[in-house]
Nucleic acid binder design. Structure first.
Lengths: 182, 182
DNA sequence: TCACTTTCTGAACACTGTGTTCAGCAAAAT
DNA sequence: ATTTTGCTGAACACAGTGTTCAGAAAGTGA
């Protein structure tokens, strides 16, 4: 790819990242991004159709890092015996989130939080997979899934909202204590 | 209060409610509300400073109905022995939500969902009160609170998102099964 | 009924932000 | 050296917001 395109693209990403540190995505104007990135107006629009598409693409990129191939569970794993493997997997995800703390924390303010939830929930359904069916509660499987994944996302949001104070291990431990009650 | 003011106000509320059935709040323009309510532009702005303030006030009114005085727990109640009283209280809340199904379901789309969550979470902290401290899990009380209230709000959102298919009783039962595990 | 007060009306306006267009310039590729 | 590709920025059309104000309409009270 043309070096110029690369340069422009990262300039835009960097500009948005910087601006997101100070205010919510929906309060940032395209003009501000353009000025911060120091590019021409039409250049921006030749790279992204809209401001929302820019955010969408940024998220895409970030989440594909957070949930990189190596993180997704393989069929061979058995989460029924004990939950240690599952805990390790989830803790791993939290470490990756910590790596992207800057961007993720910004996205968690305002409307863009929904993007986070959508992506996260999509990936988690895969990650949790059939671990959920091994939890023995007498409720519909739809409800169980909703409860397990929902409360995990909630917990992570709460963790991020508190500035990632605790360690990933602590969070996962607490989450499993609440969920499994042993 | 002047009858004209009352008329205008309900016309605006009704118009917004009707429009919310078809599209998300943030996609509705002030002009559409005005046309639907059949009032003058300046009349709208003499009643509400902004479109967001209108939504805020609508929510205020609705939630004060959903969490009417009679619903909030009295100090005398003891939730430590068994959770039946707590379950009854929460089920009661769900019935009230069902009464406002039309408006609440609309608000649950798009950005305005955050308003719902904010209000709901505020009221619930009061409703749950010290019931939370009677749940015996070895995690920080902040985490416990986050988990208990967060997963309840999640469950309710899920319920609303599914069109309130199940009965309040079923939802509360399932929620307690997941939370208490007895 | 008549004077008064309050509310409603709607066109006109200023303002902010979006997304497009296009001619000219700069950088990369061949 | 020539062609292709990408960048520039001013100008533009457009949509939506919130304000203003003079005049019409409706409510109030004697």
């Amino acid at each position: 790819m043309d070096r110029r395109q690369q340069k422009t693209r990262t300039a835009i990403y960097d500009a948005l990242t910087k601006l997101l540190r100070k205010r919510r995505f929906e309060d940032i104007t395209v003009q501000e991004i353009i000025d911060e990135a120091n590019i021409g107006r039409s250049t921006f629009y030749s790279h992204f159709e809209t401001k929302d598409q820019l955010l969408e693409q940024m998220c895409d990129e970030m989440f594909s890092h957070v949930f990189s191939e190596s993180l997704m569970p393989e069929k061979s794993h058995d989460f029924s015996a004990n939950h240690e493997e599952m805990k390790a997997l989830l803790e791993h995800i939290l470490w990756h989130i910590k790596d992207h703390e800057d961007n993720i924390s910004s996205i968690m303010y305002g409307e863009s939080e929904k993007l986070f939830t959508r992506y996260f929930s999509g990936y988690l359904e895969e990650a949790f997979g059939d671990m959920i069916s091994h939890i023995d509660i007498d409720v519909s499987s739809e409800f169980k899934k909703q409860f397990v994944i929902g409360s995990f996302i909630n917990t992570v949001k709460w963790w991020i909202g508190n500035g990632l104070t605790q360690s990933p291990g602590e969070i996962i431990d607490a989450y499993f204590k609440c969920l499994i009650r042993k």
